[in-house]
């Protein structure tokens, strides 16, 4: 009964989006009260940029989560992308298409390795994608000997630092990606297969759904979106950021979970992710404004995740006793 109601609430009832929505409102109000400067134009633009960057990967993470997986290799793929672009172009915009193609191929390969470990070898997704994260990180270090040479072409700066109608380009990219994902998840056979696979992989498989392909497609989609996010990030910083490939970037996961996408698969939709991304982006920038150190920022993010999952556990259980 409990899981049942939870499932319904997550997918059909507005109750599933109520919590992240009220959380967002709460943080926005709190920011207004404590930090008057929060609503300055430049600061809001920073929030929108953060949302765009996190959002692109969070959509990929959502797809993987819906298929009952988890993708910890997102940060490594982003880092690899910037390194590929820097080394292959060395700032030469003419070589950019070839470098992007290479990064996309690398992304597909990494997604395929994740999928292969999970689908063919039955490795738990957490372990598989973490191992791939470490592997890619190691490969970057070995390849560059710790020194990623090269420059980011100016062309990419439009993607990372540009603005359209006053709004940072990354947010537009995120909006596009989210819209496409929302349609695919809700309105296509592929989306239905993903939900079925995530909700009950055994039943889905025995119903003739090629669950392996569905899961693999999810990991590859996530890796490709991480490549896109890597391009945005490179365009934003304008330089190779070795730090990036080394950090286990969990913002995508945090956003999806805060928004209400279930870690247990099959529950949640892009609306949740968008809310989670908005909440996380506001939170991150607000924490910066408050001058919280990295530790404080992480602690607040962690608390938000815990609160979100705790509220989700509780809500349906209370309603489920009828």
């Amino acid at each position: 009964m409990t899981t049942l109601t939870a499932g319904r609430a997550a997918r059909f009832a507005p109750a599933g989006t109520l919590m992240p929505l009220s959380g967002l409102a709460l943080v926005l109000v709190a920011a207004a009260v404590w930090t008057p400067g929060f609503y300055s134009e430049a600061n809001l633009r920073l929030v929108l940029f953060q949302a765009g960057l996190i959002g692109v990967t969070a959509v990929g993470q959502t797809v993987v989560l819906l298929g009952r997986g988890i993708d910890l290799s997102v940060g490594a793929v982003m880092g690899l992308t910037t390194v590929i672009v820097a080394t292959q172009t060395d700032g030469d915009g003419g070589k950019l298409p070839a470098a992007i193609l290479l990064a996309v191929l690398a992304g597909i390969a990494i997604g395929a390795v994740n999928a292969g470990l999970v689908v063919l070898r039955g490795v738990p997704p957490f372990v598989a994608t973490f191992a791939v994260f470490v592997l890619v990180q190691g490969a970057i270090t070995a390849w560059t000997r710790g020194a990623a040479a090269g420059d980011i072409p100016h062309g990419l700066q439009t993607l990372g630092s540009g603005r359209v109608l006053g709004v940072p380009t990354p947010l537009w990219v995120f909006a596009g990606v989210a819209a496409v994902a929302a349609v695919v998840l809700a309105r296509t056979g592929a989306g239905r297969r993903l939900y079925a696979t995530g909700s009950n992989p055994r039943a889905a498989r025995l119903s003739g759904i090629r669950t392996g392909r569905v899961i693999a497609a999810g990991y590859i989609a996530s890796a490709l979106l991480a490549v896109l996010a890597g391009l945005i990030s490179a365009g934003y910083a304008g330089h190779v950021d070795a730090q990036l490939s080394r950090s286990l970037d969990l913002n995508s996961l945090a956003a999806a979970v805060i928004g209400g996408v279930a870690l247990t698969g099959g529950k949640g939709h892009i609306g949740h992710t968008v809310l989670g991304v908005a909440l996380l982006a506001v939170l991150i920038v607000w924490m910066l404004q408050l001058g919280a150190g990295t530790g404080g920022q992480l602690a607040v993010q962690g608390a938000a995740i815990l609160l979100a999952t705790w509220l989700r556990q509780r809500g349906p259980a209370a309603a489920g006793t009828r």
């Binding site: 400067g37 300055s40 134009e41 430049a42 600061n43 920073l46 940029f49 953060q50 990030s233 934003y236 910083a237 304008g238 330089h239 950021d241 730090q243 990036l244 950090s247 920038v285 910066l288 404004q289 150190g293 990295t294």
Partner: peptide, 19 residues
């Protein structure tokens, strides 16, 4: 803190110059 990341530093600085 910037974690010695140019990306993070840019975000931090963007917020500083706004505030």
């Amino acid at each position: 803190n910037t974690d010695w990341s140019a990306t993070k530093a840019k975000t931090v600085a963007a917020q500083l110059l706004a505030r």
